[in-house]
Every structure is written in C-alpha cells, then in structure tokens.
Write a protein that binds this DNA or RNA. Structure first.
Lengths: 174, 174
DNA sequence: TGAGAATCTTTCAGATGCAGAATGATTATT
DNA sequence: AATAATCATTCTGCATCTGAAAGATTCTCA
C-alpha cells in the first residue's frame, strides 16, 4: 500500500505549497458572497446591485448627465444606457433633456424612486446585520475602519465594480 | 427659480437617504478590486484566478475526480472541463483514468504544475503586500482574523467564487 | 445474470455581462 | 460656415456561465 490514493494524500517529499489563505483571497470571496446575498435580497424588487448603485449615484447628486455618472462609476456610457432604461421603465428615474445642452440627458429620481431608495436602505441594513452577525459592535467598527483605509489606499471609486472577468489580460500589470 | 436644477440640488424637503457606505459594499468593492489586481499579475502566466484556485485544490488533495473537485468548488462539472483542459494543455495538470472506476478522471499536478504553484505563491505575496501596504502588521493580523470569522460564519467554500452576476433572480432570497 | 438506473466526463446551445466601434444629433472651435 | 468634439444610443463581438444531451462505465436488485 505505497500510495493509498483514495483518501487524503498528504505525504509526498516535496515542500508543500503554503497553506495560508491570503487576506486578498478572503476579501474577494467574502465580497462575492456579500454581493450575491445582496443581489438575492434585491431580486424581489427586480433590481440588481448595479441598479442600486446608480440609483444612489443619481439620488445623491440629481441632474447630472449620463456621461458624468458613467465617469463616476467607471463604466462606459454605452453600458449605462440599458441600466437607465430599466430604471426609467420601472418608474424610478426620469431622463430630462438638458435645455442648455440638448445632447445630454439629465437624470433625476422620481418620487417612487426615492421611496424605493428607502426600502433599499432597509434591505441594506438587514443584509449588513446578517453579514456581520458574528462580530461585536466594536469589531464591526474596527473592520469597517480597516476596510475603509484599504479602499482609500487603492482609491476605490464608490460605484459599480465589474468582476475580474472584465479584465483583459493585455493591460500592463500593476 | 423654484427648482434650481443646474447645480447641486441638496436641499429638498425629503429625508435624504443614508450616506453611510456599508461594510458589505466595501467588502464587495475591495474584493473585486483585489481579484482584478491578482488577475493582472497572473496574466503573464496565462492563468486566471479560477485556474489558480483549481491548481491549489488539486495540489492539496491529488487524485480526486473532477466531480469531487467541482463539488468542492461549487461549480458544475461541465464548467470544470474547460479549465482542466487549459491546465492540462499548459502541462500543469494530468488527467489519469481511475482504474477502479474507469468513468472517472483523477487529477494530479505535474512537476511543472508544482513549480508554477511556487511562482504563484510569490505572486500572491506581492499582491498581498500591495493590498495591505497601508496597514501595520498588527492591523493586518486583525483584519485577517475578522475576515476569517466572517468567512467561517458564512461558510465560504475555499474555492472559485462566481460574481453576483451568476445569481439567477429566480431563487429564494436568503 | 442481466436490465435499467445512476454516475462520470464531455460537448453543445443558449443566456448574460461587458467593452468598444459606428451612428445621429447637437454643440464647440476657429 | 466648416470642422471637430461631445452626448446618447445601437450594434457587434467576445468571454463567462449554466443546464441539457450523449457516450461510457458502474451500480442495483430482481
């Protein structure tokens, strides 16, 4: 029985690769998990996390052009169109032609949009509570501060983030 | 001028939506960012994070079937095939027919595969260092422990995580 | 033993996310 | 006035991901 292949295999002569799970990995796994759970909670409203991000972006500074918002969120303007279409069809957002520059559409939350934002805030709090349930209040604060430091350091835009899948391997490594 | 639509609009009568950026959001943004940077560093090796996850999975317990690995990683077995094809074409992984069950393929790292794993470990450390550069050593430890607690609590599988995009809105909310 | 059910891999077809080029309308530049 | 730049939109193409066949093998149990 020299190999015992069925069970575990933990005894070759080689230096085994490091077992530690990196913080970066934890971050990305937890982030994906958190986003997925949030998406689940959002599904009954027929919204996705990007929709919500945009709603927030519009609500916090109404009247901006699609281009401006696309820039803030780091997405191509062409991608924004479909999202705004959805939000407008749902009656949450209004496109108004800019009178000073009739190429541009200025975006506003409707009254219904603002109501939905409050509903979303509740959902967000539930989600947050579920996510952090294993941490004490002090620990939650600690965690939040540490993450905020990282975010500032990496200058994360407060917007919609694509998955790494979006990465084209032809850019230069950081 | 009752509306003043041009400038900022920060003065309606409504209760403005909460400004706080949730920890869940930070997590997901940082996670996406981290995964993207890691993907960038991996690109010269012609590998993606899922490839690396699988390599690790195979290296840590060689000889398992594709089905077993697909289960561990929470992905459909059909999706695994292409990844293993890639890894095998690159000479990092070997498929061997299981003699006891000739339907199954058992997966092993080649010597080259193990070498690449070590290179990947280096890359991971660089990545980690860049990510955490703004934190003291004690803070890094704190952060890691807090995240680990969350991961355990949410029982995150140590595998390949799809983005929330994968979520079909027809499942039940958690 | 032998027939049908289950299991493993693989291929294939379809849905979705995403970026970038092309287009039409409008505005800025000179 | 003519040309260039800018905004929104549409369209095309590529990558990711899933689930449904299909072929090979093994299991079940009558």
């Amino acid at each position: 029985m020299a190999k015992e292949p069925g069970t575990g295999a933990r005894d070759s002569g080689r230096p085994s690769p490091p077992e530690v799970i990196g913080t970066g990995y934890l971050l990305s796994a937890l982030g994906a998990h958190s986003a997925m759970n949030f998406a689940r909670r959002l599904a009954p409203l027929d919204l996705t996390p990007p929709h919500v991000g945009l709603l927030r972006g519009i609500g916090m500074a109404p009247g901006r052009s699609q281009q401006a918002i696309a820039d803030e969120f780091g997405m191509p303007a062409s991608r924004l169109v479909a999202f705004i279409d959805d939000l407008e069809a749902a009656g949450l957002v209004e496109r108004r032609r800019d009178e000073r520059d009739r190429r541009a559409h200025r975006l506003f939350l409707t009254a219904k949009g603002e109501d939905v934002m409050h509903r979303i805030a509740e959902i967000g709090q539930d989600h947050e509570a579920a996510l952090l349930q294993s941490l004490s209040s002090a620990e939650r604060q600690q965690l939040h501060q540490l993450l905020e430091r990282l975010a500032v350091n990496q200058d994360i835009a407060p917007g919609v983030h694509p998955g790494y899948r979006t990465m084209r391997p032809d850019d230069s490594a950081s």
